[in-house]
């Protein structure tokens, strides 16, 4: 179970990075970045997860409610989800600006230094 979860975390991170490195479109690249980002969210939740623990909501509980999963990690994960959304939106806006100025979204054509300059 835990091994599977960590494997999925690593897989998402690697796949996201692979997509970013091979991407031919900035919008595609930004979405791949968000996949890599969700790997971190999942890792945070997985670290805070307790087998058979219930959600960290402390109202209407029975006398002996048993363990809860770690709420701190959920708070961190929540922060990262929102932060990731902001970063993705910002990157998409930048990509639109790039397209407006250069007419392309292909990172291969978007060099900051021209290859043939002396």
């Amino acid at each position: 179970m835990t091994v599977l979860a960590f494997a999925v975390v690593v897989w998402l991170f690697v796949v996201g990075l692979y997509g970013m490195v091979t991407s031919r479109n900035l919008i595609h690249l930004v979405v791949c970045l968000s996949v890599a980002q969700s790997a971190t969210d999942l890792l945070l939740l997985e670290i805070g997860y307790v087998g058979h623990g219930h959600a960290p909501v402390f109202v209407d509980l029975p006398k002996h409610p048993g363990p809860t999963v770690d709420s701190i990690m959920q708070a961190l994960s929540l922060t990262d989800v929102v932060l990731g959304a902001a970063v993705s939106a910002l990157l998409l806006a930048l990509s639109v600006q790039v397209h407006k100025r250069t007419g392309t979204l292909d990172p291969d054509e978007l060099r900051t230094v021209e290859p043939n300059r002396s």
Partner: peptide, 15 residues
């Protein structure tokens, strides 16, 4: 499923 309902909600809205 991992008992993180509030994260799930924000992920739903965001993702």
């Amino acid at each position: 499923a991992m008992q993180a309902a509030d994260v799930a909600l924000s992920q739903l809205v965001v993702g």
